[in-house]
Structure formats: structure tokens, C-alpha cells
Amino acid sequence: MIKVGGAGAFAAGLAGCLGGGNGDGGQGTTTDGGDGTTEGGDAGTTEGGKTTQSGDSLDVGMVYATGGLGDNSFNDMAHKGIKQAKSEFGLSFRNTEPGNPTEVGTLQRKLAQSSNPNYDLICCIGFVQADPLARNAQRFSDQKFTIVDESVDQPNVASYRFKEHQGSFQVGHLAGLLTDMDFSAGKGKTNGDLTVGFVGGKETPLIQKFEAGYKAGVKHANSDIKVLSAYAGAWNDPAQGQSITNSMISNGADIVYHAAGGTGTGVFKAAQSKGRFAIGVDADQSKTLPKYSNVILASMVKRVDEAVYRSAQNVQNGSFKGGTTQTLGLKEKGVAAVYGQQLGSKIPEDVKSKLQKSRKKVVAGDISVPKKPGKV
């Protein structure tokens, strides 16, 4: 079901991943025609189809990936960016959440057709937005759009992409170094089997970049390490994520990295129950999911918040650049490996030093990170 809401909450930091989402939602109807109410600058909420908004300046419409808000990951990082822009610019924004991919184009279209408010910018979050946006951008040629995690070649669309494979290389390098040593911290412990795992949401070219980078990083530490890979087929199925991870742990994996949205919660649950480790994605998940911080070694964060914030700022400043794509990697600090808040201090300094060195080599181009798992 399509959800429509107002402003949300967040702070600033490093971030993000998944451009897809749970495709299992049913066909929904929208209560939104752009006619939300404004309430004195406070954050808005969604309840029973009611829409509230905040601020009184720029008007921004948000169309999230189909995993929805509350994923403690990709969508929530986008939410963080627009909330930061609201705080700094006093803008108004409306949140819309498609229940499945077929609803994405409808929400884009409804926001573009709105006259109350007349949206200055529509932010489309996730790669699933690309095809419908290519059509809607042509149809509404005077409307400014931003897309995050994909590129749409239209003069009224600003595109933001990330070098997820580079950030994934870093957490893969970390996993490879730690699985190759006797390491214990929090609730986790390595087992000496030289095996780690990767759990993806849906098997798309974007998520394959995470897998490829992770595998390359692991192999950079030790080419003898085995990497188990599996895809859940969904972005919001923690039970499936837990089942896959339990299987990987049974087959020797002691560190599992996920790029699976809400499905990743199951990865953390399995690691915690089995006394192994996990690596988060998009946001610092040791903070967004603190109950699992005793097994989260690190997170590969993507600055989805920065992309959303920059786009709103550019419209505010009159410097919106449609027809362009900005790609953010390690060099641009668009992706990064961030140590877990509880376990980060337990990671040996020589491991951290090796990660710093490999990061510099990736930035300098001395290490070329593959984008496809088959190229590892």
C-alpha cells in the first residue's frame, strides 16, 4: 500500500545502499494529491492516510524506495538528508512510500501534478525509480527531479550515484583480516574456518557491486578465504535473512555482510544468536540498531543523506543542475567503512592500519575494485 506522510527525524553522519525494496506489497491507493496541511515547523506524521507537513519555504516531495521508511538503512538515510535540509532551509517536505514497484511512477506523477503545494523538487530514492522517472521527467519537463542510486538522462533530472564496490572492498578487507585471526569481542568470535558470507536483497546489478567489492576486499586480505553468497529475494524479510545467515554460519562463516535493507536485521539476529559477527550497510547500523551492536563490526555507509541534502540545497540556491550525474566514492567521502560503536575499539590497530593503506590505494587507483562478482 502506498503511504503518504510528512517530515521525519535524523542527525548527520555517514551513510547508505539499497535502491530497491520489498516488491511484495499489494496494489495500493494514495491519499495524496499534494494537499497536505502545514503545522508550525514541527515534524509531520502519517496516520490513517493523514498527511502533515512542516516549514514554509521550498516544497519537496519524497518518493522512497519500496523497502519503506523504518529500514534503519537506505530510506532512513534519505530521510535524514531531507530532515537536515528542512532544519537548515526551513523547507517543507512530504514523504510517500510505494508498496511495490508498480506504484513508484504513480507517486512521482501525483507529486508532479500537484498545485497545492507546487513542488520545487521531487526526490526519487532508489534504482527502481529510474524507468518511470524517465517517462515522467519528459511528461513534466518543467518539474525538477533528483534520483539517488541511478542515472536518468533528462535535462530536468539531477542524478546521484555511489561507488558501493569501493566501500564494500573496505569492509571485505576488514572481514578477511579478522577471519584469518583468533578474534573475539562482544558476543562474537571467529572460528578459524577462513569463511565469510554475503547476503544481498534482490540480485540486481547494483547489489552485485556490493558483493563484488566485498569479495575483492576479502581476497585482498587472503586469497584462500572462502566467501559464501546468497540473495534473499526481498528487501524486508528478516526471517529469510536470518535463515540464510544461519545456514552460512553452519557452513563455517564467522562474519556476514549484508546489502539487503530490512532483511539485514535477520543477519544481525542470526550472528548474535550464534556468537558470530556481522557487517551493516548504508547507515552505521551499530547505532541505528543498537540491540545488535555487540556483533556489528562495522558498516559500509553511503551518503544518501548528502545526495538528498545537496539536491535540495542546489534548488534553494538556484544552482540545480539537471542532466548531470554525480558519482561519490571513497575519494569524495560518499562511501566509507565505519567501525561499530561497541566493537570498533576492540579491532586491533594493525588491522585498522592495513585498512587505511588499502583505502589510500583504492583512492589513488592502485587497487581497481571490480563491479561484478564474476570479475573477482
Rank of each mutant, 00 (worst) to 15 (best):
V4H: 01
A9H: 13
F10A: 15
G23T: 13
D24E: 12
G25S: 12
G28N: 05
D35L: 13
Q53N: 03
S54F: 02
G61K: 04
V63Q: 03
Y64W: 12
Y64C: 11
G70M: 06
N72R: 08
S73I: 04
D76G: 10
A85V: 09
S87E: 08
E88K: 09
F89M: 15
S92W: 02
G99D: 08
P101C: 14
L111A: 13
N116S: 14
P117F: 01
Y119L: 14
D120H: 09
I125G: 06
D131P: 04
R135D: 09
A137K: 02
F140M: 06
D142A: 12
T146S: 14
I147S: 03
S151W: 00
Q154V: 06
A158N: 10
S159F: 00
H165S: 13
Q166H: 15
Q170W: 01
M181Q: 15
F183S: 11
G192L: 10
D193V: 10
D193R: 14
V196S: 14
Q208F: 09
Q208I: 14
F210S: 14
K219D: 06
L228R: 09
A230Y: 00
W235E: 11
N236S: 15
D237F: 08
N246G: 14
S247H: 06
S250C: 06
A253H: 10
V256W: 06
V256M: 12
Q272R: 13
G275V: 12
D282H: 01
D282K: 00
D282T: 02
S286V: 01
S293C: 08
V295H: 03
L297W: 12
A298V: 10
S299I: 10
V301F: 03
K302L: 04
D305V: 08
A307R: 05
Q313W: 02
N314C: 08
N314Y: 05
Q316V: 07
K331P: 01
K333C: 00
V335K: 07
G340H: 02
K352P: 01
S358M: 01
V362H: 11
G365L: 08
I367T: 09
